[in-house]
Write a protein that binds this DNA or RNA. Structure first.
Length: 163
DNA sequence: GCCAACGTTGGC
DNA sequence: GCCAACGTTGGC
């Protein structure tokens, strides 16, 4: 089992971590991503068991609000060729899929979410992709060091959810 | 293959 | 709600 850590963004008005908690098995297919760099992480990078931080964007206080893990590795995103998809892409077909997704299962909703503003204040966090100016990636890797610091900030005992 | 125009993201 | 930054598209 690999040890890579990730972060996914979601607008809570569209899909929040509370929505994830209500899904069967608290698991959801992470579909609809239409960016090649993010697609590559979904298709090639994310492995079963990898921890995935869940981030709420486009709200007053953007924050990392919880932790999930990858329960199914990259497979074609069928929403691309479904009629009423929110993100249709006629170039992607079952024979030649362009877009990929993983399945994510909820592990923890943080009692104390890690606010973006607090990450910005922390000198140890400045290299996070999330904090880079103009960053729009919705799926990105997180270093193990940053992951541990974030879990610390969220007051999650470090041994409880690693591995 | 350049680059202007466009649509989208996401912090503020 | 605004707008800067970004990725994609398409004319040339």
């Amino acid at each position: 089992m690999s040890e890579n850590c990730w972060l996914v963004k979601s607008e809570p008005d569209t899909f929040s971590i509370q929505d994830l908690a209500l899904r069967p098995n608290q698991t959801e297919g992470w579909d609809g991503v239409r960016n090649y760099q993010a697609r590559n992480f979904l298709r090639d990078g994310m492995k079963k068991g990898d921890p995935v931080l869940f981030y709420h964007s486009r709200i007053k206080k953007p924050a990392i609000v919880g932790l999930c893990s990858v329960v199914r590795e990259g497979y074609p995103d069928a929403s691309a060729w479904h009629r009423d998809s929110a993100h249709p892409d006629p170039k992607s077909t079952p024979e030649n899929p362009i877009w990929y997704q993983v399945d994510l299962c909820l592990k923890i909703i943080f009692q104390s979410p890690v606010l973006l503003e607090n990450l910005r204040k922390d000198p140890q966090m400045q290299e996070m992709i999330l904090l880079k100016k103009g960053n729009r990636l919705s799926v990105m890797p997180v270093s193990t060091a940053h992951y541990r610091l974030i879990m610390e900030m969220a007051e999650i005992p470090i041994n409880s959810e690693l591995a």
